Amino acid sequence: MSAARRFPLQLIGAFFALYVIWGSTYLVIRIGIESWPPLMMAGVRFLVAGCLMYGFMRWRGAPTPTLVQWRSAAMIGFLLLACGNGGVTLAEHSGVASGVAALAVATVPLFTLLFGYFWGARNTRLEWAGIALGLIGIAMLNLGSNLQSSPLGAAMILFAAAAWAFGSVWSRHLPLPAGAMASAAEMITAGAVLLIASLLSGERMTHLPTAAGWGALLYLVFFGSIIAFSAYMYLLKNVRPAAATSYAYVNPAVAVMLGIVFAGESIGVEECLAMAVIISAVVLIGLPQWRKQKTL
């Protein structure tokens, strides 16, 4: 019996977490940085989430990571979470709309294919077409008023996407802890790096966070970091990888909708066209994976 028949409710819940929760974190980050300094909020988020997950995994009997595994986790955590998520947080703090930030991060599959090429991966013609189309979409996105009004934010968000992709590819070649312990170690080390960066950059709390600020932080810790990641790991084990990674072209639509409805954000014609082009590019990149999985 297939996983979809045995665990329909679990699968529905996992996809909901992957699509809606991860898509909503961009809006929640925007709400949070109204009360928290951006690097400090990101650092606290990952340090707390990582410690909670680490404690849970140790309680379940997972072995303590070795020194080599901690070092590998620190490097991947730095790229994925400190540079990747930290860059998104800083970009939104500089004025980039949450929906546009999510759309820019949807370019991660494009960068992933490009970086994979340096590790010996060979892309199909369809994947190269997707990369080319995605680059056109990035250019169109930067023509929109949102990123033009914040050039630094535009650079940060694209750097964040590239760092996440590079870390994702590199992680396959490093000795990381098994299972969710890898994520816990990555979050702990990235949280520490972000808090050090917050201190060195002179971030200070000028007032106590509002109730919305505390709520945003708690949401990012429990839902955005722990629950959504666990759902992603569950889907990787129970559905085709192409289905599990489909969040790349669903999250932007969710983030844009939530930003318009709850934050009064406006997305121009340029951004809408760029969204269509980038999502089409990600679909093109995913087609070879869908075909491979169907033949298994």
Rank of each mutant, 00 (worst) to 15 (best):
G259I: 15
F15K: 10
K294F: 01
L147T: 14
R240S: 14
P38K: 04
P109T: 09
S225Y: 01
V44A: 15
M57R: 13
G202S: 13
G23T: 11
L199Q: 08
I227S: 06
A4H: 13
M75P: 02
R30C: 00
E271Q: 12
G99D: 11
T112C: 08
W290T: 00
V250Q: 04
R172I: 04
L208D: 08
I12K: 02
Y117M: 13
K294T: 06
A192S: 01
A74N: 09
A14V: 09
F15M: 09
T206F: 11
E127P: 07
L208K: 10
A165F: 06
I196Q: 05
F15I: 10
V44Y: 08
R172S: 09
A4G: 02
P252W: 00
L141N: 06
L114P: 04
I196T: 05
P177N: 08
A160P: 02
P175G: 01
M181E: 00
M53D: 09
L47W: 01
L143Q: 15
I21F: 07
L200M: 08
L208Q: 13
A274V: 09
H173N: 01
M41E: 02
P288T: 07
C83F: 10
T189D: 00
P151C: 08
G137I: 02
L273G: 12
P252I: 00
C51G: 01
P252Y: 01
A212K: 01
L200N: 02
M233P: 00
L158N: 04
M187D: 11
M156D: 06
W119F: 15
L67V: 13
G77D: 09
S201R: 07
P151Q: 06
I226M: 11
G134T: 03
A74W: 05
V193P: 06
I260M: 11
Y234K: 04
F16K: 03
T124I: 03
L27K: 00
F15D: 08
L18I: 13
P109C: 06
T245W: 00
M205F: 13
L114T: 04
G55I: 07
R6D: 04
A161C: 08
W59S: 10
T64D: 07
F262Q: 07
H207V: 01
W36G: 06
V254S: 02
C272P: 00
V96Y: 05
M187I: 06
V20Y: 12
I12Q: 03
L9V: 14
Q10N: 09
C83Q: 00
I138F: 10
V256E: 11
L81M: 15
